[in-house]
Design a protein around this nucleic acid. Structure first.
Lengths: 232, 232
DNA sequence: GAGTGGTCTAGACCACTGT
DNA sequence: CAGTGGTCTAGACCACTCC
């Protein structure tokens, strides 16, 4: 009962009220909640407005919705965190630091054992780059690029433009996979990053594809101190 | 020009077509794209349908929308990856392994230098737990819990029920922060995980709050081999 | 001021899926 | 089969922001 203070509109206010009821245990985990039509009456708005509010809450993991089954409060709310994967240069500049890079290696080679390039035949563009923030090396990039997918990149001056940035702007892609892990720095890596051998690196591995064709695979190894953050 | 094959409906098909145009460079980065009314005419649907498709594309980072400014293709599309933060037990069981835990420490203590507990006065519940998959230790959990926010937890048998799981189901919370990083295993950590001292651990640090009150802070250190994965 | 996206409404039909 | 969420429509008004 107890309708809301009279004037309630906007899906956001309803969304907030829904989250409040979950947080305050008005609606308990596992509970069936009133259906959209009922809530629309209670809130005095159109069903579509309730739908929007509930859909967003479900997408965030707070509710579980099923046709005919109705809507229930999630029992074990799987929290969903959204990470931004920015262009490296912008990530550095957003910390008010100056970005620069050094191209250590540029070759055409056979990608062997490279994730995403399993069935690849012929040679691919292989890059190794050190990224610097205010002149200090903080990130090693090891990248393989499928030249069949982005032939133009063979003519780009990768000393000037980062492959990362060029690809983001010029390589259409449909999807990919990302994995995060930790790894001990090899002697070589330690030398390049000016850190102790064996130091713990934060590693991001990413494969991007267009359809079923791989475009690029990259391994980013961040020097100690790097933190990837987000809110939930 | 070239209207679509005639029958086009559903925001999802329009969404797919929009992404295709971006991918295939029909619409180039930075380009202004037709406004909603125009697209609605082209696709032969209501403006609300176009709105839904474009809104989702913008949320995913492919478009930038501004009132009056119109909609443009993002020049440097910031990829957004969504991570699921599951309950540890379920994560293990989803790999068809058996989950178990060992409670190493349970004390009331002053949280000093604990993120999120900066202004905390008095004592908090401090836990240290080893999580095992098929009997093999793979994760160290170090947790602080604000007893004022969840007094019932003081009476829970944390040997049986994981604090992680209990909190997820019983502690209402409104938000929090997560950070991911890498760290070298200390001698103690190495001993507990049966790995070499200094090995690279994947670390997740999370603070959850209700309003401005901290509920719990946890540091999860995963043994080498752990990968957190997602698709984009 | 005017153009464009953001949202709300009232009603309708459809698609799943539990009973 | 029937209840519930998912979506579409046509129209309206509002809010922001560029000119």
């Amino acid at each position: 009962m107890s309708a809301l203070p009279a004037i309630q509109h906007s899906w956001q206010s309803i969304h907030a009220e829904v989250l409040r009821r979950i947080r305050e245990r008005d609606w308990k985990p596992g509970d069936r909640v009133p259906d959209e039509a009922e809530l629309a009456t209670e809130f005095g708005c159109a069903r579509a407005t309730v739908n929007r509010a509930m859909r967003e809450a479900a997408q965030a993991g707070f509710l579980e919705r099923k046709r005919k089954g109705g809507t229930r409060v999630a029992t074990l709310p799987v929290r969903k965190a959204t990470l931004d994967i920015p262009v490296i240069r912008l990530e550095v500049e957003s910390r008010d630091q100056r970005w620069s890079q050094k191209l250590l290696l540029r070759e055409m080679a056979r990608p062997e054992g490279v994730p995403g390039f399993a069935n690849f035949v012929g040679k691919a563009l292989h890059l190794r780059v050190v990224h610097k923030a205010d002149g200090r090396a903080f990130l090693l990039e090891e990248r393989w690029i499928n030249p069949a997918m982005v032939p133009q990149i063979l003519e780009i001056d990768l000393e000037t433009v980062s492959a990362n940035e060029w690809l983001v702007s010029n390589a259409p892609f449909s999807g990919g996979d990302i994995a995060f892990s930790a790894a001990n720095a090899s002697d070589t890596e330690a030398g390049l990053l000016a850190i102790a051998s064996g130091a713990a690196l934060f590693v991001i591995e990413r494969v991007t594809c267009n359809g079923d064709q791989p475009i690029t695979q990259v391994r980013l190894a961040y020097a100690p101190g790097y933190r990837m953050q987000t809110s939930i």
